[in-house]
């Protein structure tokens, strides 16, 4: 009898220890809203969501929020002649690119913050770092639109003549889910943070909705 109890107890303990599915946090401000569901008013949470956008990529193709429909993506802000942190960011983003090169569930999006980065400049840059626009979009657009989008991803972008290259920006990578919510922010110049990003991407890909 005692043995049975011990076995039962062990089973219960082990059951309760069963690892919960890992989920990433949802970042940004949230709001409680009242929505009508099946004729009843219920409270729902409204998360910080990336709004619609319209930019143009290295192949002169329009890139909008629809491009990323049903996908998760990693995004950052850079410019091709940036002498400070960008090459390191690109070195690290290339790690993400190489790892998920053949995985259609994920895309990369880099916004240029320089007015000089025209489509041909972006195309030449893409060629030099040997990337395909099927996976990684380098986009340009109206400067104010880019700056507004940066705020949405919690990235700082300003024009500053005293900075090397003429622009000041933070080197963060943001991980965005299928519902266009921010699920992680990483220092794009730090290989350890990018290790974490690679782990988080796998968690996000395996999350049940």
């Amino acid at each position: 009898m005692r043995t049975y109890r011990i076995i039962l107890l062990t089973v219960i303990i082990l059951w309760s220890c069963k690892e919960k599915e890992k989920r990433l946090p949802i970042l940004g401000e949230r709001q409680a809203i009242q929505v009508e569901k099946d004729g009843k008013v219920v409270t729902d949470t409204l998360y910080h969501t990336i709004p619609a956008f319209r930019f143009i990529n290295q192949d002169s193709v329009e890139v909008t929020e629809k491009t990323f429909e049903g996908k998760i993506y990693v995004t950052d802000f850079f410019f091709t002649t940036c002498p400070s942190i960008c090459p390191k960011m690109k070195q690290q983003m290339l790690r993400v690119y190489e790892k998920y090169k053949n995985d259609d569930r994920i895309l990369l999006l880099s916004h240029s913050i320089s007015r000089e980065d025209s489509v041909p400049v972006l195309r030449a840059y893409a060629k030099k770092i040997n990337i395909s626009s099927k996976k990684w979009h380098l986009v340009t657009g109206k400067w104010n639109d880019i700056e507004q989008m940066a705020k949405m991803y919690f990235v700082t972008v300003t024009e500053d003549k005293n900075e090397p290259g003429g622009y000041l920006h933070s080197g963060h990578f943001a991980l965005i889910d299928k519902q266009r919510r921010i699920r992680g922010i990483y220092e794009g110049t730090n290989p350890k943070e990018v290790d974490k990003l690679l782990e988080d991407i796998d968690i996000l890909l395996n999350e049940t909705p």
Binding site: I85, P87, K88, K90, Q91, Y125, K127
Partner: peptide, 15 residues
């Protein structure tokens, strides 16, 4: 180092 990298490895066909 921010462009030529810590170990002097450069970047792809860019740097």
């Amino acid at each position: 180092a921010s462009c030529h990298m810590e170990k002097g490895e450069g970047l792809a066909n860019l740097i």
